[in-house]
Amino acid sequence: MATGGRRGAAAAPLLVAVAALLLGAAGHLYPGEVCPGMDIRNNLTRLHELENCSVIEGHLQILLMFKTRPEDFRDLSFPKLIMITDYLLLFRVYGLESLKDLFPNLTVIRGSRLFFNYALVIFEMVHLKELGLYNLMNITRGSVRIEKNNELCYLATIDWSRILDSVEDNYIVLNKDDNEECGDICPGTAKGKTNCPATVINGQFVERCWTHSHCQKVCPTICKSHGCTAEGLCCHSECLGNCSQPDDPTKCVACRNFYLDGRCVETCPPPYYHFQDWRCVNFSFCQDLHHKCKNSRRQGCHQYVIHNNKCIPECPSGYTMNSSNLLCTPCLGPCPKVCHLLEGEKTIDSVTSAQELRGCTVINGSLIINIRGGNNLAAELEANLGLIEEISGYLKIRRSYALVSLSFFRKLRLIRGETLEIGNYSFYALDNQNLRQLWDWSKHNLTITQGKLFFHYNPKLCLSEIHKMEEVSGTKGRQERNDIALKTNGDQASCENELLKFSYIRTSFDKI
């Protein structure tokens, strides 16, 4: 039985969820670079991206490699990797027998973001014989899940209580170790020597080791999670996991709180800001991140802002960003909400898709409305799209047979046209069989910064309504002859009103 693990408890099935942008060198404390989270699957090609990484700022997932063999891993080693800020997950990587050479110096898994409450997941690794993470000293947050690894031993010899604050939620089941077939031998045991430290858990006094050649490092209890030197002297209180010299914040392997210019500090002093819960960055760093993602459509890219001495992905609820200094300031009234469309555009074809934009005031991208039916549609669209004030790209209304009016965009005031449909149009209306009105132009103002209007096959939309939009939106004169079809717009509506004058002759039985 794995020490510190839980057996036999019912657990939810383990679901495996399925960018080499360097964020800056980590400095003297770390020998390499800070790398983003990685999802490495199918083959070993991307694994080489770990070569210079000291910190993975995010998670590391290595999974679904069915053609790899043990010899493929023999020359692979990433000794610079010290810390993973989120979680480490391995799933069905064939041929991998140990992690001792792959990650010989991995010391800390912070667990800032977890995989279903777990910071370390080893699942269905069919050839893994031992973990071998002999320098792993601290899992700051989260638990361990090690399950269905039929060859995995050296679990009962690990004292997880020396690595985690609590072992109650560890789930370590259905491994070879369960069948008591392992016969784990710690260093020196074969020669009758006791080389590794022994600890007591559940009444068992057991030597602690990761492999037959690597003991588990056990520091004096007084050192807590700070770690200790090879001689057993406690590291500085700002260290986490390990250090090369005692009581020196510049000799830590990793930091308990924050890293700044080669030393570990309790908090980031001005003019620095907390970033990702582990390091200090200056304003320029946060500003660069903001600008890199301002026009990016890459998933996970955030326009970072500053709030409460932190550089964070977005302002919290009730705050909006001051564009001059990136500071989050309290909103006066309802907060603006910028919604970034991942692929640059979004099609609204149902109430469900409209709900995804609920509360958005600025759309960074283009909207395509293609709704053919739905219950209580006008009210639903207004509830979900009615706060949109600005669209950076274009607005396209296409084959939306259920629409009679666009009044559900009740606050839309600006279409920038930074991206144009077919390279020309910022407003595009095609084949809307029941569209009769755009907006009530006596109450609604709309500016279209650039781009043209396109109207074709809107049989109940009168040309007068379209011409009014040209005047109000500032697009009059931009359109070419064929942009607004004269014969297919309003051709099934009563669009022309003329005053009919009647004269009559009164007659009676005795007068003409």
Results as ranks from 00 to 15, higher is better:
328 C>K: 03
232 G>A: 06
175 N>S: 11
77 S>E: 08
69 R>H: 09
182 C>P: 13
327 L>N: 10
146 I>R: 01
70 P>K: 09
200 V>Q: 11
289 L>A: 09
252 C>K: 01
310 K>H: 05
152 L>M: 15
61 Q>L: 08
311 C>E: 03
313 P>S: 09
188 G>I: 14
270 P>V: 04
58 G>R: 00
270 P>K: 05
303 Q>S: 11
147 E>G: 09
57 E>K: 02
195 N>T: 11
227 G>W: 08
287 Q>L: 05
277 D>R: 09
95 G>F: 05
125 M>P: 01
136 L>Y: 01
171 Y>S: 07
209 C>S: 03
97 E>F: 15
140 T>D: 12
99 L>F: 09
120 L>E: 00
201 I>F: 13
241 G>E: 02
80 K>T: 06
122 I>R: 00
121 V>A: 05
138 N>S: 15
326 L>P: 05
229 T>K: 05
250 T>N: 09
201 I>Y: 11
170 N>G: 05
309 N>P: 02
242 N>V: 11
150 N>W: 06
245 Q>F: 05
215 C>S: 07
279 R>S: 05
144 V>H: 01
279 R>A: 09
67 K>M: 08
204 Q>N: 14
238 E>W: 05
85 T>A: 03
274 H>S: 11
178 D>N: 14
251 K>P: 00
324 S>I: 01
230 A>M: 05
298 R>A: 09
287 Q>G: 15
299 Q>E: 12
245 Q>I: 09
225 S>Q: 07
55 V>W: 03
58 G>S: 00
61 Q>V: 06
304 Y>R: 03
200 V>T: 10
227 G>Y: 12
181 E>T: 09
294 K>P: 05
102 L>A: 03
122 I>G: 01
60 L>M: 05
252 C>I: 00
152 L>I: 10
80 K>L: 07
109 I>E: 00
297 R>K: 13
70 P>R: 11
205 F>W: 15
279 R>T: 03
197 P>Q: 14
192 G>P: 05
91 F>C: 01
63 L>M: 08
113 R>C: 13
117 N>M: 12
186 C>N: 02
48 H>R: 03
188 G>C: 10
251 K>Y: 14
241 G>D: 02
221 T>A: 10
269 P>R: 00
116 F>M: 10
170 N>A: 10
77 S>R: 10
89 L>G: 01
55 V>N: 02
162 R>W: 14
136 L>P: 00
82 I>N: 05
196 C>R: 14
141 R>C: 03
177 D>S: 03
199 T>A: 07
149 N>H: 01
298 R>N: 06
254 A>I: 02
76 L>C: 08
336 P>Q: 04
38 M>Y: 08
117 N>W: 07
68 T>I: 03
157 T>F: 05
37 G>R: 03
329 T>I: 15
246 P>Q: 15
156 A>I: 10
240 L>A: 07
218 V>C: 11
165 D>N: 05
317 S>A: 05
129 K>Q: 11
99 L>D: 00
318 G>S: 09
322 N>K: 06
139 I>E: 01
62 I>G: 01
276 Q>C: 03
64 L>P: 04
328 C>I: 02
259 Y>R: 03
162 R>F: 08
58 G>N: 00
147 E>H: 07
115 F>I: 15
117 N>V: 07
56 I>C: 02
73 F>L: 07
169 D>V: 10
125 M>D: 05
334 P>Q: 09
161 S>F: 11
226 H>S: 05
34 V>P: 07
161 S>T: 13
62 I>F: 06
335 C>P: 08
169 D>L: 07
152 L>R: 01
61 Q>T: 13
97 E>G: 11
155 L>D: 06
333 G>R: 04
214 H>E: 07
199 T>C: 11
185 I>F: 03
210 W>L: 06
316 P>M: 04
329 T>V: 08
56 I>H: 00
139 I>G: 00
89 L>K: 01
63 L>P: 00
35 C>M: 00
237 S>A: 12
51 E>L: 06
136 L>T: 03
283 F>E: 11
154 Y>T: 09
270 P>Y: 10
120 L>A: 11
43 N>M: 08
241 G>Y: 04
48 H>S: 10
183 G>T: 07
169 D>C: 05
54 S>Q: 12
239 C>D: 00
57 E>R: 03
274 H>G: 15
99 L>V: 09
36 P>T: 09
298 R>V: 11
295 N>Y: 13
167 V>R: 06
308 N>Q: 12
309 N>R: 11
138 N>H: 10
155 L>Y: 12
112 S>V: 11
138 N>L: 10
53 C>N: 00
38 M>A: 05
31 P>N: 15
131 L>P: 01
92 R>H: 09
205 F>K: 10
33 E>W: 11
67 K>W: 12
67 K>V: 13
191 K>P: 08
289 L>P: 04
247 D>I: 02
305 V>D: 02
298 R>M: 04
209 C>H: 04
232 G>M: 04
250 T>H: 06
186 C>F: 09
217 K>A: 15
287 Q>S: 14
191 K>G: 13
60 L>P: 00
261 D>P: 04
45 T>V: 12
228 C>F: 03
150 N>L: 10
193 K>N: 08
269 P>E: 07
206 V>Y: 03
195 N>L: 12
113 R>F: 06
201 I>D: 08
62 I>P: 00
295 N>K: 14
168 E>R: 11
320 T>D: 09
62 I>Y: 00
241 G>H: 04
100 K>R: 11
127 H>T: 12
212 H>Q: 14
258 F>M: 06
233 L>K: 09
334 P>G: 06
117 N>L: 06
145 R>P: 01
216 Q>S: 06
243 C>K: 00
166 S>Y: 09
